[in-house]
Design a binder for these strands. Structure first.
Lengths: 159, 159
DNA sequence: TATTGGAAAAAGTATATGCACGTATTATTC
DNA sequence: GAATAATACGTGCATATACTTTTTCCAATA
């Protein structure tokens, strides 16, 4: 005959926290972003700014919320990041037809800095890619996408 | 007979920037860290703080620079993160034997909050792990470690 | 059409991040 | 032992990040 065990408080096994996805992601992001930033430093922009400018170049004019959704960034974070780019004259932010919305557009100055930044970014990207196989790289990118999908609130629940 | 081509400025192919390791890492880190933070919110600490407390619990007393090296965090970033934990009485920071150093130690309060946080962290970690196979997870962690090693300045050059 | 509900965005507050620089302490060298 | 180099750390400044609250505007409905 079996008995229920007492509800004891088990000391957590913190050893397994070494495999925390969040911790390891943040650690790698710090290191990798610093690496890109270092190569971009000569022209005075950071990797976060480069990524936003590239996206704006590819997307064309876009509202703040749409851009935030697309790059998986909190809207208020994006607003502040855009303020920096606007101050540098790399983007313009104007009111949309729906006057609640704000349309973000890359400027000529933004395109110029993008062209300057591209070879620097490419160098950083190449060096990092050199540390892993093509299969590893594709696997990594796939896994990162899967993570984003896994943790994002289900959009279908909105309807 | 071959000729050297004119040194033309080629329009960059920004399409390939979609595979930027830094951009995709940051994006996943934003989403994933938010997910952990959401589950940790009931007890009032963030995933960054949880990770630091876990590390301090496992390592015992440690200097700021050693800790920064181990978690691949800028020393000044760590100082500020520790200030928050110190304010909450989760860690103590005292002068070491070498009076230049500062010894960081987790407190009783820190251990208490750790025990409370563990099941919440475990739940988040489990849900995320559920989105991928064991092989994928191990591959991801391996790739993240490889990235950190790839971009870190070669330590042997210091000697 | 007046109201009400929802959407888009900014501002306030706080943590996270890192570079440049300065200070205190230890180690080294002459 | 004094001068110098190296180490450990913090502060000032700026960007990156996100939650909460408030404001503005559009849409739907009674």
């Amino acid at each position: 005959m079996t008995h229920l065990v007492d509800p004891v408080v088990v000391t957590p096994d913190f050893e397994c926290c070494k495999d925390c996805i969040g911790f390891n992601l943040r650690k790698a992001t710090r290191a990798v972003s610093q690496f890109y930033d270092e190569l971009l430093r000569p022209i005075g922009i950071r990797s976060t700014q480069y990524s936003l400018l590239v996206y704006l170049h590819m997307s064309g004019s876009i509202t703040v919320t749409q851009l935030a959704d697309n790059v998986v960034m909190d809207r208020t974070t994006l607003t502040r990041n855009l303020n920096v780019l606007e101050k540098e004259k790399f983007v313009t932010v104007i009111s949309g037809l729906d006057r609640r919305t704000r349309l973000v557009t890359i400027t000529q100055d933004g395109l110029v800095i993008l062209d300057k930044a591209y070879p620097l970014w490419y160098q950083a990207q190449s060096r990092i890619k050199g540390a892993m196989s093509e299969a590893q790289l594709n696997g990594l990118l796939d896994n990162l996408s899967a993570l984003v999908k896994a943790v994002q609130p289900n959009e279908t629940l909105k309807n």
